[in-house]
């Protein structure tokens, strides 16, 4: 509901805006927030607010009444004089003190007040007719199914691997709603998860649209994702790379042993078959561990001596065949 927000604010126009300005603002906003143009779940509610605001402000007579009586103007009978209303509000506030809102009955007027309360509140809830139902196509079209909506959902690589239950918060009718979503194992970046019937509301009991959650795989500290293949760095000491070794590497599915063959240089990719993201329909991805030789920043005395011996004995030239 837009009741707690100012109609002028919703349309983004000043209170003294001309009817042309109001129409211009409405047309532009309606075009960008229409549920079929904008599939953000919050857009549907904004579109309704915009339509409601325009409904009131586009008619000079209801606009005048809105200006005078504020958001409750529909509850004030047509023949109430704005000045009398203002005085009654002030009087009500004075007697009712801090409790409740003025104009709701249950309070008395001071002795000097000449306004008849019944007269003032006679139209309460009765004066809703007027311009009749809301603007909107449903009047001519009967029930209209709701539009589909799209929202992003961020999923970590671990969640994509194991599957997860997540809560998504979406703006919707009556404030934020939380949805429990099951992320199946093996979702990929950009995949859409359909939540049937969680999209835009249909009018007059027509079926609601669907909500599509577009999976965004969050960047990870250690893994890079390419399709279902995971890429990770495998940091090796020079002697490990030269002599070969077996290294424990953390993967989303638990620790895996990587056999590093002797003579491995930086950049060599070691494939761990099936250790990437699972695939519900076929072969799982692989984990590709890229060798990265790391040398100690500072050598101990013994290490330095050994490296010097190695340098003297080796006839390996890494730049020979360039």
């Amino acid at each position: 509901m837009a009741a707690d927000r100012d109609f002028y604010q919703i349309l983004g126009v000043p209170r003294e805006a001309s009817q042309d300005d109001i129409q211009r603002a409405y047309r532009r906003l309606a075009r960008t927030h229409h549920p079929d143009v904008n599939n953000d779940p919050a857009a549907e509610e904004r579109f309704k607010d915009i339509s409601e605001a325009y409904d009131v402000l586009s008619d000079p007579q209801t606009r005048r009444r809105y200006d005078a009586f504020g958001p409750d103007f529909r509850q004030v009978s047509e023949d109430v004089d704005p000045e009398a209303w203002r005085r009654a509000q002030a009087g009500a506030r004075a007697t009712a003190g801090a409790g409740g809102r003025a104009g709701r009955g249950g309070f008395g007027f001071g002795a000097g007040d000449e306004i008849d309360l019944d007269d003032l509140l006679g139209g309460l809830f009765g004066a809703r007719g007027g311009r009749g139902g809301r603007r909107g196509a449903s009047r001519d079209w009967g029930p209209i199914p709701g539009a589909d909506q799209t929202a992003d959902i961020e999923v970590s690589i671990e969640e994509a691997y194991h599957g997860a239950r997540k809560t998504v918060s979406l703006a919707g009718p009556g404030g934020t709603r939380n949805l429990q979503v099951t992320i199946p194992p093996g979702v990929t970046d950009g995949q859409r998860i359909r939540l049937t019937g969680q999209g835009g509301r249909g009018s007059d009991g027509a079926r609601p649209g669907d909500l599509y959650l577009v999976v965004q795989i969050a960047p990870h500290r250690t893994y890079r994702l390419e399709g279902r293949d995971l890429h990770a760095d495998l940091r090796l000491a020079p002697w490990e790379a030269a002599l070969g070794t077996s290294v424990a590497l953390a993967t989303p599915g638990g620790e895996a042993k990587v056999k590093v063959p002797p003579g491995t240089s930086s950049g060599r990719r070691l494939r761990l078959r099936g250790r990437g993201l699972p695939n519900p329909r076929g072969k799982p991805g692989d984990l590709l561990a890229e060798a990265k030789i790391v040398v100690p920043a500072q050598l101990s005395e013994a290490e330095r001596e050994l490296f010097e011996q190695l340098a003297a004995a080796a006839d390996f030239d890494p730049r020979r065949n360039q």
């Binding site: 129409q23 211009r24 409405y26």
Partner: peptide, 9 residues
């Protein structure tokens, strides 16, 4: 033209 502006196009 004035009308096109009011229609926001």
């Amino acid at each position: 033209v004035r009308r096109l502006v009011a229609l926001g196009i």
